[in-house]
Amino acid sequence: MERLCLDCGSPIRGRADKKYCDDSCRSNYNNRLNTEDNLVIKRVNNILKKNRAILATLNPNGKTKVSGKKLVSAGFKFEFHTSSYETQNGNTYTFCYEYGYLALNEDSYLLVKREESLG
């Protein structure tokens, strides 16, 4: 049975376990695999960055109240966030990096900015 290169499909000569006809095909094949995997990560990171930018824009002073409609109309996606924090009294703040929100009622949110050092 003739073995074919995983990248270009041309016949392979040489070792029995060889998968590619040359280094260029090996590199192309692996780059294509990594690109497909990285697209999902890139899309999620772009959504997280957009959520953070929306929270930062709507909360320039570190603490404010906004409606959920305002967040949604700006393009905010509630299902994407980086962390959450539950207070001692049971409130759960949801964060997108250092900017977060607390649901107050059906359509009202308290936006906050967490001040902390990374080091």
Rank of each mutant, 00 (worst) to 15 (best):
K77R: 11
G75L: 05
G90H: 00
K70S: 10
E98I: 07
V66Q: 07
P60E: 10
H81D: 08
Y97K: 06
T92W: 11
G62D: 08
H81F: 15
T64D: 12
K77S: 12
E98R: 10
E79I: 11
Y93S: 13
Y93P: 02
G75H: 06
T82V: 02
T64N: 14
F78T: 04
V72E: 08
F80R: 11
F76S: 02
A74C: 01
S67K: 09
G68A: 09
V72H: 00
T64E: 13
E98L: 02
K65D: 11
F95Y: 15
G62K: 11
N89R: 02
G68T: 10
F78W: 04
C96N: 05
G75K: 13
V66C: 02
N51P: 03
S83Q: 15
G75R: 10
T94D: 01
T64H: 04
N59Y: 10
Y101P: 02
H81L: 06
L55E: 04
L55W: 05
T57V: 03
F78P: 03
F76G: 05
F76P: 07
I54R: 00
Y101G: 01
A74I: 00
S84P: 03
N91S: 14
S73Y: 06
Y97G: 08
N89E: 09
F76A: 01
K63W: 02
Q88S: 12
G75E: 10
V66W: 00
T57Y: 06
P60A: 09
I54T: 04
Q88F: 07
N89M: 04
K63P: 01
L55I: 05
L55C: 05
T94A: 06
Y85F: 15
G90A: 00
S84Y: 14
K69C: 04
K70H: 11
C96K: 00
S84H: 14
N61F: 14
Y93V: 12
F80T: 04
S83E: 15
G100R: 08
T64L: 12
L55R: 09
P60N: 13
S83P: 13
F78S: 10
S84D: 15
P60T: 10
Q88N: 10
H81N: 14
F78I: 01
A53H: 02
V66Y: 02
E86D: 06
G62C: 11
S83F: 15
E86Y: 03
G100T: 07
P60S: 03
L58T: 04
Y99S: 04
N91K: 15
Y97L: 01
A56S: 12
S84W: 13
